[in-house]
């Protein structure tokens, strides 16, 4: 009897271990009209790790990603946390209408996070914060909203400013941005991570308040759709 119970317990343990080592087949699709996404950082991690948290101030690592698309700080943070990481799966920018597909072996890590900056924005990003990876194999869908890192005023001036703390938008990768904008605002009143209010934009490519085009660079949530297949 005792031996049998032990055998059952051992097989249960083996089963639960194998169900935790998740192979994820992930596809990220850009749903927007005219927004490019900077290189993604995608990670499987434990329950105490966060790339960002809504309602909390951004970390310097998140700020660097949200203002300039630089994921190196987040990758370092995740590496220290023993996360399983995929960097830049799209091999550059993810254009409107484009998708990227890749595999992530999350090992024993139970949570999935990812993030990427929206261009052209000042500090807009899309992200998933600690999505619990289902143990049941199957296909799951995640709709992703756009957030404002709360670290930079949304002046909507395209001036190449991508370093943390530098004002302005790095670039409009579609080549459809304007110049000579006077700026939409100089204030960032909510300095925590919050839902992005969207680009304002204008229809003047060489003047006006904004270098962002209101007909092209606005969006409504969600901005990304993610298909996760748990194998």
């Amino acid at each position: 009897m005792k031996f049998n119970k032990l055998a059952v317990a051992a097989s249960l343990a083996a089963f639960s271990f194998s169900s935790q080592a998740a192979q994820l087949d992930i596809t990220i699709s850009n749903l927007t009209h005219g927004i490019h996404f900077t290189p993604f950082v995608v990670a499987g991690h434990d329950d105490s790790t966060h790339i960002f948290q809504v309602g909390q101030a951004a970390t310097p690592e998140l700020q660097a990603m949200a203002e300039g698309g630089d994921i190196s700080g987040l990758v370092n943070m995740l590496t220290t946390a023993n996360a399983e990481i995929v960097e830049n799966p799209a091999g550059g920018l993810l254009a409107p209408g484009a998708s990227t597909n890749f595999m992530l072996d999350t090992g024993s890590m139970g949570y999935l996070s990812l993030s990427s900056m929206l261009l052209p924005t000042n500090d807009g990003f899309a992200g998933v914060d600690a999505w619990q990876i289902p143990s049941e194999p199957g296909v799951y869908w995640i709709n992703v909203n756009a957030y404002d890192a709360g670290t930079e005023a949304n002046d909507e001036i395209i001036n190449g400013g991508g370093a943390p703390g530098a004002a302005g938008i790095p670039v409009a990768p579609g080549g459809d941005g304007g110049t000579n904008a006077t700026g939409v605002t100089t204030e960032e009143t909510n300095q925590t991570v919050h839902i992005h209010r969207g680009n304002l934009g204008d229809d003047d490519a060489t003047a006006g308040k904004s270098d962002v085009d209101s007909r092209i660079h606005r969006w409504l949530n969600p901005v990304l759709r993610i298909r996760v297949e748990v194998l």
Binding site: T32, H33, G34, P96, G198, D202, D203, R215, W219, L220
Partner: peptide
């Protein structure tokens, strides 16, 4: 336009600065 189906970005409107 972009020639693929995507999420609509919303309308801008004259009141929100699209002069035409």
């Amino acid at each position: 336009d972009r020639d693929f189906v995507h999420r609509h970005p919303g309308v801008v409107s004259l009141d929100d600065g699209l002069t035409t």
